[in-house]
Design a protein around this nucleic acid. Structure first.
Lengths: 199, 199
DNA sequence: TCAAAATATGAATGACCGTTCATAAATAAA
DNA sequence: TTTATTTATGAACGGTCATTCATATTTTGA
């Protein structure tokens, strides 16, 4: 409510809410946030225009809802897959691979997340700052254990995010050659291991 | 003309053209491409609305002009600074440092370049694909000379672009701690050298 | 069973904006 | 000097879109 979102209580309301969210995801992906108009979302969802305002104060509220949704989903996917994995290298490998898999399955996620830079720069900063802090925690633990060399983990977090994000982009936009998921993961890990692993 | 741009011939025309371009840069940076309307650009440039259409077919033509302008400027800056530098490591260091310096001096460049993803995805692909191809050439030469290890230079180009871009972003958006230019360059080079240099 | 709350509709309002165009001033060419 | 070209103006047109609201239906809870 204060955040511009009204969560429905009834079964029908929940179904309509979900239709609107899913419609927004596909429309934002196809036309971009700015070129998407409210009727695009409602028409595609099969509801009347006014219904939109039952659940969302405006387009930006819905956008922020989506951004938080993807943040949560991506973290969950990586956390689940790496939960029982031991060691820095294997952890990184599974983490990066999961990130790539998520990007391939949800290519709209990239668009929606990066678009925050143009909707509200503070949302972009917050998204990657939060991600970096979590990454950093894991890195510090690995440094503590002596698994990897002692390197500024703040900077290292951004370096690793940069690698994953640009390779992920190359993968889903098919830029350059050799865009096989496993091959990209292997190549990235060869590099990461060779500069970080403490022998 | 065919590209939606009419280059003026007279001194006055050239001055007006420049005013419009500079106004567009600051307005796009402040409000984003989509939220910028033509009168924002003309008013800020101090000319009448119709004057815009003397030089640009529409907003997108002007945007593409800016994107090509920055592409050219950034390449030129890096090419000039690395022209007489010998060896992979020093070359990388100067290249990355020049990129950071450019980003600090022209923080609007990031916004304008990345926004292409939402204006016309093919522009974004082309921008980074071209950049990657140039990077790759240099990397292949270094591999040939035996300066660095034999690694897929297509992938390595995207990895290095990812590192520069995310650290550059951290730098200009002041995310995390320790955002001193030289410190970031040093840290990035410690990593890059340690995984690539052929001893 | 019945009043209150939640959900749904879509026409109407009012604001905004891209683009055109008739007109005119300045500059260049002859 | 005279004519053609370039440059400049800003009101006006036509279209789009966010948001509201009167009305109606469905669901919930007592």
């Amino acid at each position: 409510m204060e955040n511009g979102i009204k969560i429905p209580t009834s079964r029908n309301g929940k179904a309509t809410f979900k239709l609107l969210v899913e419609s927004a995801i596909t429309t934002f992906y196809k036309k971009g946030y700015s070129n998407t108009v409210i009727v695009d979302i409602t028409k595609n969802a099969g509801v009347a225009t006014g219904t939109f305002y039952l659940y969302f104060a405006n387009k930006k509220s819905l956008y922020i809802y989506l951004l938080e949704y993807y943040q949560h989903e991506i973290r969950k996917a990586i956390a689940e897959k790496t939960a029982n994995v031991e060691g820095f290298s294997k952890n990184q490998r599974i983490g990066i691979k999961t990130f790539f898999q998520y990007a391939i399955k949800h290519p709209e996620a990239y668009n929606i997340i990066w678009e925050s830079l143009y909707i509200d720069k503070s949302l972009f900063k917050k998204y990657y700052h939060d991600f970096a802090l979590r990454y950093q925690k894991g890195l510090d633990a690995s440094i503590e254990k002596g698994e990897i060399k002692k390197i500024d983990s703040d900077i290292l977090a951004y370096i690793l995010m940069g690698i994953s994000n640009f390779l992920g982009l190359k993968l889903i936009l098919k830029m350059g050659n050799r865009n096989k998921l496993d091959y990209l993961v292997d190549q990235a890990m060869v590099l990461i291991d060779s500069c970080l692993i403490q022998e």
